[in-house]
Nucleic acid binder design. Structure first.
Length: 421
DNA sequence: TCTGGGGTCCTAGGACCC
DNA sequence: TCTGGGGTCCTAGGACCC
């Protein structure tokens, strides 16, 4: 049976989450900042209308934001993750074939049908999520994932469609002619520039471009995108997420850091978070990469960035053991005198826990360690991250980043429940 | 003063092997 | 002294995504 794809996308997701618990923000300009209050990463429509750009550094637009009375929030990921989960749960109840693609997007696959029928399906999903969760969403339908993305963009940009748009076969070319090629999913800045040299500036021109040339200029990924625009599905619906291949944790510091002791504390903290994610997915890591860097900006100081990979003696998921290896790796790449801006860790070679290849010299995995980690995860899950943490992560933690405008964790912390009246 | 964090996939080129 | 061809694996870097 012929299938059709839909993309559901939460409108201005982080801003919509903030508005859920502060309805006074509806109709007002609102933005949400990235970690460390660095850049603007979500904007309400009112904020977009004021000309605030996506990814704009906060320090550059700070005065404009204040002058225009824009409400500014630090990002509150526990809140957004929880609301996302609720939206996806409702969607999964309504539709059997769903791929959760990101925190605010999901692909749906459903039997092909008359555009009017699809439109009705879209409206029903949209209304149900709006009623039960309170998050506004847009839904676009198309013959492939890439076309569904295009349809979603039209649903969002053209209010007359009421948030739902079906890209019917006969109007595809007319629509694609009006879409700049850079806005197609999978075509970034670099590819768009390459294509422009050959006169390809619209999605329609990409659709009609010659295969050999696409293959050469943009590799198979570019060719796949063009095929998808032609209505030939090349990207499958991934209903169960494939297991992670790597887990990264890193943060920018709130101020430049010079002291190795502070770097070590920060690194231990991130290793602890990464290891917790690792255990939550029931994985172990076979090697880890430690990296550190000075700021990419500010030409006045010397820049330095380096990284190193450590292979572990045997696969491991213990915070304390990983901290030990990471600290040793850090010593290798640390150079005195630099103004460091960030440090981080990547866990690699992830394999399912339980089927360990034990080290020849270590008869069996350390069961006391495992029990300790399990207890720590349980406590932290119940009482909040880092209720219990390794002493290596420090007590003073003066290096921590800034988050001066954070809303409460309304739905995930007993201490921060919203008050009524 | 102040510029995020976490991922995936693809390719070219080098090392190594037979 | 000169001279082949085919294959795998690994890594770094580029590009893209949200």
């Amino acid at each position: 049976m012929r299938k059709i794809y839909a993309l559901l996308d939460c409108n201005n997701f982080y801003v919509s989450c903030e508005r859920l618990f502060a309805p006074g923000l509806n109709g007002k300009p609102v933005v949400v900042l990235s970690n460390n209050d660095g850049c603007v990463i979500a904007r309400s429509n009112e904020a977009k209308a004021l000309g605030i750009g996506m990814g704009e550094p906060f320090f550059k637009c700070r005065r404009q934001l204040a002058a225009d009375k824009v409400r500014v929030f630090s990002s509150n990921y526990p809140l957004y993750a929880d609301i996302s989960h609720r939206v996806m749960t409702v969607l999964a109840r309504l539709e059997p074939e769903v791929e959760i693609y990101s925190i605010d997007e999901a692909f749906i696959r459903l039997p092909a049908a008359d555009p009017a029928v699809l439109r009705e399906t879209g409206r029903r999903i949209r209304a149900t999520i709006g009623r039960e969760i309170g998050i506004p969403v847009s839904i676009g339908f198309g013959a492939t994932k890439t076309l569904a993305k295009v349809a979603n963009r039209l649903a969002k940009r053209q209010p007359e469609h009421g948030g739902v748009f079906v890209l019917a076969d006969r109007e595809i070319d007319t629509m694609l002619a009006s879409v700049p090629v850079a806005e197609i999913w999978g075509i970034g800045r670099r590819s768009a520039a390459k294509l422009a040299l050959g006169g390809i500036t619209t999605a329609l021109a990409l659709k009609n471009a010659e295969d050999r040339r696409l293959r050469r200029q943009l590799t198979v990924t570019g060719l796949r995108t063009a095929m998808e625009l032609r209505g030939i599905p090349c990207l499958p619906l991934e209903q169960c997420p494939p297991p992670s291949q790597s887990i990264t944790t890193s943060r920018s510091f709130g101020r430049p850091v010079y002291e190795p002791a502070e770097l070590k504390e920060a690194l231990a903290t991130y290793v602890g978070i990464a290891a917790e994610k690792l255990r939550a997915q029931r994985l172990t890591t076979g090697s880890l990469q430690v990296f550190l860097a000075t700021s990419r900006f500010g030409a006045q100081q010397r820049q330095y960035a380096n990284s190193t990979v450590v292979t572990l003696p045997s696969p491991c998921a213990s915070t304390t053991e990983l901290i030990r290896h990471a600290a040793k790796a850090l010593q290798h790449i640390f150079r005195v005198g630099h103004a460091y801006q960030k440090v981080g860790v990547i866990l690699l070679e992830l394999t399912p826990a339980g089927r360990l290849q034990p080290n020849l010299f270590q008869a069996q995995p350390d069961q006391r360690q495992e029990a300790l980690m399990a207890a720590m995860d349980t406590i932290n899950h119940k009482w909040g991250r880092e209720t219990l943490h390794s002493a290596a992560t420090g007590l003073l933690r003066d290096w921590k980043n800034r988050q001066n405008r954070k809303s409460p964790a309304y739905t995930t912390s007993w201490h921060e429940l919203p008050l009524v009246g």
